[in-house]
Design a protein around this nucleic acid. Structure first.
Length: 606
RNA sequence: GGCCCCGUAGCUCAAUUGAAUAGAGCAUUUGACUACGGAUCAAAAGGUUUCAGGUUUGAAUCCUGACGGGGUCACCA
């Protein structure tokens, strides 16, 4: 920041434009009409391109309460705003109920000057808030697939958004490492593997175990078919099949601590963890704390007692314990089996308590697919009824499944897009494109490998994060993920081009008044940059990384339009050149920052 | 069947939470490298926002109904 520059007045306390416009509207309304309006009630939009202006105040709601014709009122409002802030507004116009405001070039230049050197632009200083994000939470009986990747990228990114907004974050994961599904792959291995291991076969551990899980499903299907052919109902056949009975026995043996079973369980889970570790490292998922279901599944038992004492729960004649949620529009829900063992939801309540005891977070976010909406509704409700202090902070970040054109993925049926496969595929395509374009002469082998990874993963992460998390999305394996248009590589490419300019140009003094007026594309880029701080706030509040992806794309797009139209190196004047170097610097900062929040790296060259 | 989501260009997705003529990318068509990097840019074409009513100055968005798709209603996790 250059405070000594006499031609340049930097406003250290400058707010973001939109809140500032709202504030001015508020104070003018108060002064002129003695009307106090909440800032949320004032609607300030970006002006549509077909009209003159940068921001637009929608007048209807204001004129309605004032009972004045919107056009007359808008005229008065615009006049007063312009008089109050001549440094901020250059002009205004009214078109049938909309007050369009033109922002001065000076204020945008001030903004640019005050931010262009700040690598942390948009980030908030730390506050005292603590946020836990639980994500990924894999089962240890099969490898990760595309759906898990959406979960991982989302959770990681939401955590990053909270951190950018000043919160302390705790990333957690619960490994679903026990239960009947785990026993199924264990049993299949025992029966069919002949002692084979990942080491002896060269198969990645999680895939190796997953193969046996699939094998179990197939073998079970055959048994069931046989029983059904013998006249048994499907339902009964599924219970009575010898393989299913054996798996259940194994689960009992596990719970009883049978040494052989435990040893096998440990061995196979470790194979899976070794496989996961490779994948997690590749995609950049990391956790501050991993919980294991095998260590937490007994939690929640004392809470059942507590619930009974508080008359939140009640016991049925067979000894099972329930909660009645019918008054809340839900059903009766079991919280403890008649044999005294905890069910899934009880374990979850137990874990809620344990997490809170360990971390005292204000908010606990669960990144879990929307098929569990009901479960989390119940979970939060029970915690509230038990008056747990942790109940308030529970938030289910419910995201839609990734589907194939043929419908949803099912591991047991084998129609899944495997995570490792798709990452390899993306790397391969990145390599292909890069070599076609021939732009990486002089790169070492390591640099090339890293570049392919940056681009391939960038494309994949962007693809999964650009969609509103709440919505289901479709992935078509026959059409590979694009590298052009609304994609990660598009943003990365824009960044690399800017870096290429900045390697050649150096920043010097800017005499703003001589660089003005701003050309339309210069103004458009700076206006876009100005929105970043507000965007980070919204994206965090809504826990929605897709807003960041959309923003990064639109910024890159508008910058590219500017780039082809105006030269930096051969600008019309040295003043323009200095202005544009600053635009380049801040744009590259924001692109790196925004993609960084999505877990996407940017290359210096590509 | 009860409850909860969803339906927007051929395809994949937006739409500042009720605002102006519903926007992008891909695919299609046309144009731009003797310009800091063409993974780019400029442009064309593509829509009765599933349908029918209603509320409102204003509806893709809110209400009612129909049709279509998904999820969930376990002493599974």
């Amino acid at each position: 920041m250059n405070l000594t520059n006499p031609t340049f007045a930097v406003n250290l306390f400058m707010m973001e434009l939109v809140p500032r416009i709202k504030e001015i509207v508020q104070s003018v309304l108060d002064q002129n009409y003695h009307l106090r309006m909440e800032s949320e009630a004032i609607l300030v939009n970006e002006t549509k391109p077909e009209f003159t202006g940068d921001y637009t105040v929608v007048l209807f709601s204001i004129s309605k309460t004032l009972k004045i014709n919107p056009d007359i009122m808008g005229e008065e409002l615009g006049e007063s705003m312009l008089n109050a802030q001549p440094g901020l507004f250059r002009s205004f116009n009214i078109i049938k109920g909309f007050l369009n405001l033109v922002i001065t070039d000076g204020i945008l230049c001030d903004f640019l000057e005050s931010r262009y050197e700040d690598p942390g632009y948009g980030f908030k200083p730390s506050n005292s808030g603590r946020v836990m994000v639980e994500y990924s939470s894999p089962n240890t009986n099969k490898p990760l697939h595309l759906g898990h990747l959406r979960n991982n990228f989302l959770g990681w990114s939401v955590a990053a958004l909270y951190r950018a907004n000043g919160y302390t974050i705790i990333k957690t994961c619960i490994a679903n490492d026990r239960g009947i599904h785990i026993c199924k792959s264990m049993l299949a291995w025992k029966l069919f593997a002949n002692g084979a291991t990942p080491g002896s076969t060269g198969i990645k551990g999680d895939h190796f175990v997953g193969d046996f899980y699939v094998l179990f499903s197939k073998a079970l299907k055959n048994e069931v078919a046989l029983l059904e052919a013998g006249g048994m109902s499907r339902e009964l056949a599924e219970k009575e099949a010898p393989l299913m009975k054996a798996a259940q026995e194994m689960l009992l043996a596990w719970e009883a601590g049978d040494p052989d079973t435990i040893a096998l369980w440990k061995k196979m889970n470790n194979w899976v963890y070794e496989g996961f570790e490779i994948t997690y490292r590749r995609i950049g998922s990391d956790f501050d704390k991993i919980y294991y279901e095998s260590e937490t599944y007994l939690l929640g038992k004392d809470l059942v007692e507590e619930g009974l004492n508080k008359h939140v729960f009640y016991r049925k004649d067979d000894g099972s314990v329930w909660i009645d949620l019918r008054e809340d529009g839900l059903d009766e829900k079991i919280v403890q089996r008649s044999d005294g063992t905890a069910v899934y939801i009880t374990q979850d309540i137990g874990l809620v308590v344990r997490k809170y005891e360990q971390y005292h977070m204000d908010r606990s976010i669960y990144v879990v697919a929307d098929e569990q909406n009901y479960h989390f509704k119940v979970l939060k409700l029970i915690c509230q009824k038990l008056q747990l202090p942790s109940a308030v902070g529970i938030f289910h970040l419910s995201y839609g499944l990734v589907e194939l054109p043929s419908g949803r993925m099912k591991t047991r049926e084998g129609n899944v897009v495997d995570a490792d496969d798709i990452i390899d595929e993306m790397n391969r395509i990145a390599e292909e494109h890069t070599n076609e374009l021939g732009k990486v002469e002089g790169f070492t082998k390591e640099e090339r490998t890293e570049l392919y990874d940056t681009i391939g993963l960038g494309a994949l992460k962007f693809f999964l994060l650009r969609v509103d998390p709440k919505k289901r999305m479709v992935f078509n394996p026959d059409e590979s993920i694009d590298f052009r248009g609304f994609t990660g590589p598009f943003v990365q490419y824009t960044y690399a081009r800017i870096r290429s300019i900045l390697r050649k140009e150096t920043v010097g003094k800017l005499y703003a008044d001589q660089a003005l007026p701003l050309l339309p594309l210069e103004k458009a880029v700076i206006l876009a940059l100005e929105k970043y701080e507000g965007l980070l706030h919204t994206a965090c509040q809504e826990m929605n990384p897709s807003l960041v992806a959309n923003y990064a794309f639109s910024l890159a797009k508008i910058f590219n339009s500017f780039y082809v139209e105006h030269s930096v190196g051969r600008a019309e004047s040295d003043h323009k050149k200095q202005l544009r170097i600053r635009m380049c610097m801040l744009t590259s900062t924001v692109l790196r920052s925004a993609t960084g929040l999505l877990g996407i790296r940017v290359p210096e060259r590509m």
